[in-house]
Amino acid sequence: MNKHPVISIDRQCGSLGKKIGEKLAEKLGVKCYDKELFAVAAKNSGLSEELFYSHDEKPANSLLYSLVMDTYSLGFTTSGHMDMPMDHKLFLAQFETIKQLAEEKSCVFIGRCADYALADYENLISVFITADENDRMEALKELHQIDDAKAKDLMVKTDKKRSSYYNYYTNKKWGNVKSYDLCINRSAVGIDGAVKIIQEFVNAKTLRIKEK
């Protein structure tokens, strides 16, 4: 199994987790995949990239979820089962693409249950980024040029969607410290501080893996 580090980052809305992931990837000299994952998954699967955007992080119904996991456990892929439901195809295409990219080289993934897809990957570092509510709202107001009420609404709805998606497709709980290797409060350490902490964790875990 490859021993190069791969980092997955889950984040609360407004925590600037994506910015932290992008800056981390820049420091490490690797690629960061957020919605960039869609283009790769679309190319690999033959599905339209627009479909990935329209179904982004939306959990399917429980019956479809069962079909997804049963099919994946049997080793079936999207290319071999084009008659399956669209949500099924899109989930498996992203799942397989995450695994493929991680096997090729170090990279950073933002959201999309990447830590679950790579649960058996030896040198995965799973991170959750949070921040104080006021800081999160200020970040959203600046980013989207919206007022307090809209920032609050966006924050609550986005976190609910991310939580539902993660909890639905994994056997873990979104935002729970037990679900991650590392949880960081951006309000306490800043963006650069968060990047530095993750870098140090990556170095420590990589060294430990090499020593095995």
Rank of each mutant, 00 (worst) to 15 (best):
V156L: 08
S164F: 01
L154S: 06
S164N: 12
N123T: 05
A131N: 08
V156T: 14
G111W: 09
K157V: 03
L143W: 01
S106P: 13
E138A: 07
E96Y: 12
R162W: 04
E122L: 12
D159H: 10
C107E: 11
D147K: 03
N134E: 15
A149D: 06
A93C: 02
Q94T: 13
L90R: 01
S126V: 06
L143A: 12
I125D: 07
V127F: 07
E133D: 12
A114W: 07
Q100D: 14
D132S: 11
A119Y: 09
D135Y: 09
T97R: 09
I98Y: 10
D115Y: 09
F128I: 01
R112M: 10
L140S: 04
E104C: 00
I110D: 15
M155K: 12
K161W: 00
L118D: 11
M137T: 06
M155V: 01
K99A: 15
R112H: 08
N123H: 05
Y116F: 12
L124I: 08
S164L: 02
L124F: 06
Q100E: 15
V108F: 07
S164R: 04
A117Y: 05
V108D: 10
Q94K: 02
L124D: 07
L101I: 14
K160L: 06
K157Y: 00
Y121T: 00
L118K: 11
A93T: 03
N134K: 12
K99T: 10
K99Y: 03
L90Y: 01
I110C: 14
H144D: 10
L124S: 02
Q100M: 15
E104M: 03
Y121H: 09
D147R: 03
Q145H: 11
Q94E: 14
V108I: 13
S164K: 07
Y116G: 07
E142P: 00
L101Y: 06
E103P: 00
K99Q: 15
A93H: 02
D159L: 05
E104Y: 00
K157E: 14
C107H: 04
L154Y: 04
V156Q: 13
L118Q: 13
I98W: 07
S163K: 13
F128V: 00
E103W: 03
M137R: 14
R162V: 05
A93R: 01
R162Q: 07
D147A: 04
S106Q: 09
K105W: 00
D153E: 15
K152Y: 13
L124T: 05
L143K: 15
Q100T: 15
S126C: 02
T130R: 01
N123L: 04
V127Q: 04
N134Q: 08
L140R: 06
T130I: 03
E103D: 11
A149F: 00
D147S: 04
S126L: 04
H144L: 13
K150G: 03
D135R: 08
K99R: 15
L101D: 08
R112A: 08
K157D: 11
R136Q: 15
A131E: 07
H144R: 14
A119N: 08
V108P: 11
K89G: 04
F128S: 01
I98P: 05
K150T: 09
A119R: 15
K152F: 14
K141R: 13
K99V: 11
